[in-house]
C-alpha cells in the first residue's frame, strides 16, 4: 500500500464486490418480483391496497411509526396438529382409554405416546381438543384413521410455530412477497410496540383503530404508545354531532359540547393498519387454513 492508487483499488474492489453481492444481486433476483398465488386457491397475493390504505402507508412513514413497530413475523418451525372436533357417541373417558390402548399397540404411535397422554390428561370432553402437535405427520394420519374408524371426527392441520405466532402476531412467517406493494418497505427495527404485520386480522375495526390512535390507554391498559391527538381535531358540536366523531369513555372525552373528529390522515392510517394481514398460505410459507376433517 505504497501509493494512493493501490489503496483506491483495494477499496474499490472490496466495496464493488459487496455492491455486486448485496445490491445488484438482490435487484436481479427480487427486483422483478410479481404477485404470487395463494396456496390451493386462485387468489393473488399480496392484495394491492386501495384508496385510504395506500395513503395510510405514507402517514405511517411520515409519523415514524416504524421506530417502535415492526411488520415482520418470525417463525421457528412448523407442526402437524391433530384436533378432535366431534367424538360422536363416545364418552371422553372411553375415548381416553381407547387412545391409550392404540398408543400401546400401534408401533408407529409409540414415539408420540407421551405427548398425546399429556394432552389428554385432565380432558373432560370439551371440543375442539388438540391431541397431538409435533413434527411427525404419520402420527397424525394414523391416529386420524383410527379415530375415523370408530366414528370420531378429527381435523389435521399444519401450522407455523414460534413465539410471534403464539402471540397472534401472524399465522405464518413474513416472506418477501408480502412487501411487494410497499414503498417504502418498513420492517421496523424495534418492538417497543407489538408487531403490526397481522393487525388487520387482530383488530379489523376502523373505529377501534381510530380510538386507539387518539387515546391508546382507553383500550389497552398500561399501553406505552404515545397518543396521536394531533391526528384528530376537537371541535364544537354543531347542529348535529358529526357522524364520524369518536365515541370515547368519559375520562378520555373532551369537554362537554365538543367532539373529536379524525382528520383525513388519521382515517388513512387506520385504513392502512386494517389492511395489514398475514393470513394467506403461500408456497414459501405454507400452513393449513381450512379444516381437513376426516
Amino acid at each position: 500500500m505504497k501509493t494512493g492508487f493501490s489503496v483506491f483499488l483495494a477499496a474499490f474492489v472490496a466495496l464493488g464486490l459487496s455492491w455486486c453481492g448485496l445490491v445488484y444481486g438482490p435487484l436481479k433476483q427480487l427486483g422483478g418480483a410479481q404477485e404470487t398465488t395463494v396456496l390451493q386457491s386462485t387468489d393473488k397475493w399480496p392484495v394491492q391496497r386501495t384508496g385510504d390504505a395506500t395513503l395510510g402507508l405514507q402517514v405511517y412513514r411520515a409519523n415514524g411509526c416504524a421506530a417502535c413497530h415492526t411488520e415482520l413475523v418470525h417463525q421457528t418451525g412448523a407442526a402437524n396438529v391433530l384436533t378432535l372436533t366431534d367424538i360422536g357417541v363416545h364418552k371422553a373417558a372411553d375415548l381416553k382409554d381407547f387412545t391409550t390402548s392404540l398408543l400401546g399397540t400401534v408401533s408407529e404411535l409409540t414415539t408420540a405416546s407421551n405427548t398425546v397422554v399429556a394432552n389428554l390428561a385432565g380432558w373432560n370432553g370439551e371440543l375442539p381438543k388438540v391431541i397431538y402437535s409435533g413434527a411427525d405427520d404419520t402420527v397424525v394420519s394414523m391416529l386420524g384413521d383410527k379415530f375415523k374408524a370408530v366414528g370420531v371426527k378429527t381435523e389435521a392441520r399444519v401450522i407455523a410455530t414460534g413465539a410471534d405466532i403464539a402471540r397472534g402476531w401472524g399465522t405464518r412467517q413474513s416472506v418477501a412477497a408480502d412487501y411487494l406493494y410497499d414503498s417504502p418497505v418498513q420492517f421496523g427495527s424495534l418492538r417497543a410496540g407489538p408487531d403490526l404485520a397481522n393487525i388487520g386480522v387482530r383488530a379489523p375495526d376502523l373505529n377501534w383503530q381510530l380510538q386507539h390512535l387518539y387515546a391508546p390507554r382507553s383500550l389497552v391498559k398500561n399501553s406505552t404508545m404515545p397518543a396521536f391527538r394531533y391526528l384528530f381535531t376537537v371541535k364544537k358540536i354543531g347542529a348535529q354531532p358529526a357522524p364520524d366523531a369518536l365515541v370515547l369513555p368519559k375520562e378520555f372525552s373532551p369537554a362537554t359540547g365538543f367532539e373529536v373528529v379524525p382528520t383525513d390522515e388519521a382515517r388513512q392510517l387506520a385504513a392502512y393498519l386494517v389492511s395489514l394481514k398475514n393470513n394467506a398460505p403461500l408456497y414459501e410459507a405454507p400452513f393449513t387454513p381450512i379444516t381437513a376433517a376426516k
Partner: peptide, 14 residues
C-alpha cells in the same frame, strides 16, 4: 423509481 419490495430493505441494510 425505487425497486420493488424487499430489495429496498436489503439496500438499506447494506
Amino acid at each position: 423509481h425505487p425497486p420493488r419490495g424487499v430489495v429496498q430493505a436489503v439496500i438499506g441494510w447494506w
